[in-house]
Amino acid sequence: MQPHAAASAEESRLWAALEEVSDPEIPVLSVVDLGVIREIEVDGAAAKVTITPTYSGCPAMSYIEMMVRDAVLKAGFEHVEVKTVLSPAWTTDWLSEAGREKLKGIGIAPPAEVSTSKQSLLGIDPVVACPRCGSENTEILSQFGSTACKALYRCTDCAEPFDYFKCI
């Protein structure tokens, strides 16, 4: 996601509130890092937040919506509307730089490349670096992992298995 530009003090306050909402499945990431906040609008004491789901069946979405609503009200806005849009569809390209660094910090490899690349369309495995030792000698154990957004890899140098935030 593009670094968000706040047009006013009110918008800055809203963005700051949203930065405090964590992804329930990967709590180091805020919903802003994750790129699910698509748009905000502030009109006096009313705030409108547009979100998009990561995966169609992501069980965290209704929870995220609730937490967003809660955070916005706590930030002092009196009315909040949370709208869900599907289009354009969420892509891992919207993960923020800060978010990618945070993932590495907890041992999850961030998406290796832009998801629109030919390689991911053709189903060729990207080069995924081990988040522990940095080695690129890694192998995929399973295309699916502990949550909808992850795949399971193993480093053949340090032998540690790790989660990879898969590209879509």
Binding site: Y55, S56, G57, S142, F144, A148
Partner: peptide, 20 residues
């Protein structure tokens, strides 16, 4: 285990799509 997780994840995607 990996396939148990994989099939459940695919199920989740499909049920999510059906909701939409």
């Amino acid at each position: 285990l990996e396939e148990d997780i994989a099939l459940s994840n695919i199920a989740l995607d499909l049920v999510g799509q059906s909701t939409l």
